[in-house]
Design a protein around this nucleic acid. Structure first.
Lengths: 183, 183
DNA sequence: GATAGTCCTGACCGATCGGTCAGTAGTCAA
DNA sequence: TTGACTACTGACCGATCGGTCAGGACTATC
C-alpha cells in the first residue's frame, strides 16, 4: 500500500466530506459520482481513482458513524440487560443527533444494502444495538425496538427543520415511551 | 373521455395490479416501466398509452389507500381531540396492515414527492391524520406522531416476515405507548 | 368493401448512470 | 537527464432509464 501522502489524503478527505453532504441532503441513490466530483472540485475519474466504486465512497462516508456505533457496543458489553438498555437508549439518541445526516442515508440504502458486502459489519452492529434496545428476548419487544429505530430514521430525514436540542428531546421521549413503558 | 370499454379496463387493471406488486416488493424508484410492462404481459409503450407517465401509474396504484385514508378522515371529523385520537390510532393500524405494501412505497417516494403534483392531496391527508394522532397541538406530541408514522412505515418494509396479526399487535402496542402514555 | 376508432407495439430518442482506460503533468531519486 | 511513480483527467463505454411516434391488427359502423 502507498504510504498515504498528504496530497492523497487531502483529496480523499474532500471527496468524502462532500459525499457526506450530498448523501445527507439528497440521499445515496439520488447522488451521482459526477455530483460528488463537481462538489469536491475534481473529475469523476478522480473519485474512482481514490475509491473502488460508489459503494466504497459511501463506506468511507459512513465510517465515522460505524466506529462510533462499535464503541457504544463495546461499552454495552457485559452489562445487565436493564442497564444495557438504559445506556443504549441515551447513547443511541446521542449518535442519532450527531450523525443525523448519515442516518438518513442508511434509510435510503437499506433496501439494497444486503447486496453490498461492504456493510455486513454495520448491519450486524445495528442488529446487536436493536437487541440491547429491546431489553428482552421477547419478539414483540424486539419488534418495538425495530419500530423505534425506524421512527428515528424517519425523523432524521428532515435536517434543518429542528435544532439538535429539539431532536434530542424528541428521540429521548419517544424511545423511553416505547422501550421503557411504566409497568 | 372514452366510455372505458371492457378491454381497456382489463388491461389497465392488470397494469395497476402488477405495478402495486412490484412497487411493494422493490420500491418505486427501483421498479422500471419495463418491469411493470413485462409483469403485466404487455409492452412498455402500452403502459404509457394507458397512463400519462410513471407517476400516473403510482397514483393509480395508490388510489385505493388514498380513498381509504379520506374515509377515515371523514369519520374523524367533528370528534373531540381525545376521541379522534383514539379512533385515529385503531383506524391507522387497520390501514397500515391492509395497505402495508403500498405504505412502503410512500417511504420510497417521500423525498421527491413534493415534486409530484399528483400527490398533494395525499400529503395534506397524511398531515391531517398526523394531527389527529398527536391529539394535541403541542409540537412535541406532533413530532411524536410523525415519529410513530415513521416507525410504522419502516416496519411495513418487511413484507412476509410477519403475519397480519403480528403486525397489527406490534403497531397497536407501539402507537399506544407513544401516543397515549400513562399520565 | 370502405371508414373510423380502439388498442397495442417495435423502433427509436436523448439523458444519465457507474465505470474503464490511455495518457498527461508534476515530483523526486539516481 | 532520465526513469519511475503519484495524482489526475478527458474521452469513451455499455446499460438503463422515462418517454415519443408512426404504424399495424382488430372491431364496429355505415
Amino acid at each position: 500500500m502507498a504510504p498515504s501522502t498528504p496530497v492523497r489524503e487531502r483529496t480523499r478527505r474532500e471527496i468524502v466530506q462532500q459525499a457526506m453532504e450530498l448523501f445527507s441532503t439528497n440521499g445515496y441513490n439520488a447522488t451521482s459520482l459526477q455530483d460528488i466530483a463537481t462538489a469536491a472540485g475534481c473529475s469523476k475519474a478522480t473519485v474512482l481513482y481514490h475509491f473502488n466504486g460508489k459503494a466504497a465512497v459511501l463506506s468511507a462516508a459512513l465510517e465515522p458513524s460505524a466506529v462510533a456505533l462499535d464503541e457504544v457496543l463495546a461499552e454495552l458489553e457485559g452489562l445487565s440487560p436493564a442497564a444495557a438498555q438504559e445506556l443504549a437508549i441515551s447513547r443511541f439518541v446521542e449518535l442519532s443527533v450527531k450523525f443525523r445526516g448519515m442516518i438518513q442515508v442508511l434509510q435510503d440504502v437499506l433496501p439494497s444494502i444486503e447486496a453490498m458486502p461492504e456493510f455486513t459489519d454495520l448491519i450486524t452492529a445495528g442488529m446487536r444495538l436493536t437487541a440491547h434496545l429491546a431489553g428482552s428476548p421477547d419478539p414483540l419487544e424486539n419488534a418495538i425496538a425495530r419500530f423505534a429505530i425506524g421512527g428515528l430514521l424517519g425523523e432524521c430525514r428532515h435536517p434543518g427543520e429542528q435544532t439538535d436540542t429539539e431532536l434530542r428531546a424528541l428521540c429521548d421521549t419517544a424511545l423511553r415511551r416505547l422501550l421503557r413503558p411504566p409497568t
